[in-house]
Design a protein around this nucleic acid. Sequence first.
DNA 1: TCTGCATGAAAAA
DNA 2: TTTTCCTGCAGAG
Length: 260
Amino acid sequence: MPEGHTIHRLAKAHRALLGGAVVRASSPQGRFTDGAALIDGSTLTGTDAVGKHLFHHYADGPAGPKVLHVHLGLYGKFTSSTVPPPQPRGALRLRLITDDHWLDLRGPTACEVITTGERDAIVDRLGPDPLRRGADREKAAARIARSRAPIAGLLMDQKVLAGVGNVYRAEVLFRHQLDPYQAGRDLPESAWDAVWDDLCTLMRAGVRSGRIITTEREHRPARNYVYRRAGAPCLVCGTEIRVELLSGRTLFWCPSCQAP
DNA sequence: TCTGCATGAAAAA
DNA sequence: TTTTCCTGCAGAG
């Protein structure tokens, strides 16, 4: 379930699992053999998540400090446990092993070893991440305020806002009764402030639980209001939830609660 | 067994 | 705006 909360959760887990340890790295699948060799035998000094990007920081080697950059994309997945690791099976891009634990990575969109400078360049291209302390919501507000694009598109644009994916965008729009097609620049600043604060709350809860739960108590046990509920009655007003493609992604919304 | 779909994003056009 | 890439799984047959 890779939206930002998943990545921040992984960063914490990997720090606990591998932090401070010397790591043996390999690519049983063979697609990342050269990259694995670059970090093999290095010490993992820390981890870091920005939006949907995960970074492992490895201690200074002969070639300087190295950063492992992973983006899970739609399909990527990590699995881990205590040693010994199972026999590698299928397309296993990267396996990391310490004295105590192993960590496997499959199907990522990005898996590369980069410099700290390249890491900073990636972060610079991203908008503020609601899950990071000190994230500048005004920076996102400014972009939204001068955009004619629909707010539903802007919320998913990682240059505007980092970490929000298809579930959070649909749910936060519903929770604030916002028309998905409303242009960013027509969104009152107070509405944006409320959306940002809500994202901070929802996504932090997501980091804690590992799930995206966006319903209020009175609407449980349903976990979400609109996401993947096309054709079902709105939990608030009973209107059929609608689904449509917006810039190539499925958008779910309630045409009544979120009327223009 | 086969098909379609998925919480993503970059490249091509 | 469309295509492409990466993998796994549920549901259909």
